[in-house]
Nucleic acid binder design. Structure first.
Length: 120
RNA sequence: UGAGCUGGUCCAGGCAAUCGCGCGUUCGCUUCCUGGCGAACGUGAGGAAAGUCCGGGCUCCACAGGACAGGGCGCCAGGUAAUCCCUGGGGGGCGUGAGCCCACGGAAAGUGCAGCAGAGAGCAGACCGCCGCGCUGAAAGGCGUGGCAAGGGUGAAACGGUGCGGUAAGAGCGCACCGCGAGCGUUGGCAACAACCUCGGCUAGGCAAACCCCGCCCGGAGCAAGGCCAAAUAGGAGUCAUGGCGCGGUCCGCGUCCGACUCGGGUAGGCUGCUUCAGGCGACCGGUGACGGUCGUCGCAGAUGAAUGAUUGCCCACGACAGAACCCGGCUUAUGGACCGGCUCACCAC
């Protein structure tokens, strides 16, 4: 069975790591309301960072839902990803968050990022 | 049975399987140490966590005392750590009623404000009107002059109301009742206030979330508070070594640069503050009640790029508002459902 654990070492937490990814990314992608930037790291596995602004989604309940959804899709897809630091940013408001969690665009992003990793 | 008023309690989809997350305890492995990894067990958002509108605790800063400015509060008593909160009471308004609502000190200290209508809007006023007298006219009436404000009309509001007497017509002009004011009157009440008595013929309209006056209260900032540890770079202080250069004829010495070491300040970053309390639950006691007291019992999130999720199946028959960020007590606002009282009105039956 593959390791699906998603601990602290799998996250982009430090400010300098964040800035490095955002300022000098190696790849940019977009899907639906999400913007993805990534930069190769030396950790040997993929790491995730999140940006969900208050001005995009007002209520903290909805922000938490979006973050959980991103983390969960990352967790299921991370073993097929290259060793990169990824930052996912929600760029435009998602009005119907309540009914449908936006998993399809996220899964599409992970697929494309995996393909980018295997063919440099 | 219907309509309605009101007080309170509880839940916040459930179960199972798999994959995951934060924190704590224990154990194991690893590591020079800080620590890292793994396992087991425990635990893990709200009634509003929200708005940040009040009140405290806590922390730092300021502070001899007083006055002014500025702001807040405003019937009385109690509760409380404290309040603009809560409880009980008083007064006023609304409702048939249960009940609900009230920023509820002062307008005989001053200043100010009041559209339209209306004759007149503050120690006012006479448009229609009422009455006396004079002149005129056959009369109805008209003109002049004086008295008046009852009735009409305007207005949110017109300088007490109703009735009787009185009068030329009228008027607190007189009387009765009601209203209003005064007494530091009597009685009841801790008090707000109420009831009664005596006096006053009415003088003193409204607005103080208009200025204002009176009484009471208030220092400022907030956990990004505050405390500790502390890279790199630049700069500071000191010590040492004496190497170069300068002032000296030389030595000593002084200045300066470089080097080594030490010290303090301090940024990134890390740690702490950080969850055990004005704490929950139960029993008994005191109190109309808010609440208080005694005893017993329980341990209940502490994240920090920020933890509660995902998938599948079944069930109730579809789940609203919504996410802790130093902590409490209130208020306000949003919101799905279940249950238990108390009371009022209407109708029917007895």
């Amino acid at each position: 069975m593959t390791d699906r654990r998603f601990g602290r070492q799998r996250r982009v937490l430090a400010r300098e790591q964040f800035d490095a990814v955002l300022r000098r990314p190696h790849v940019r992608m977009a899907s639906g309301p999400f913007r993805l930037v990534a930069r190769r790291n030396r950790a040997g596995f993929a790491r995730l960072g999140l940006v969900v602004a208050k001005r995009v989604i007002r209520h903290s309940v909805d922000r938490n839902r979006v973050k959980r959804c991103i983390r969960e899709t990352f967790r299921t897809a991370m073993n097929d990803l290259p060793a990169v630091d990824v930052v996912i940013r929600l760029a435009t408001p998602v009005s119907d968050i309540r009914e449908t969690l936006p998993q399809e665009p996220l899964n599409a992003l992970w697929l494309r990022l995996g393909a980018w990793g295997t063919s440099p």
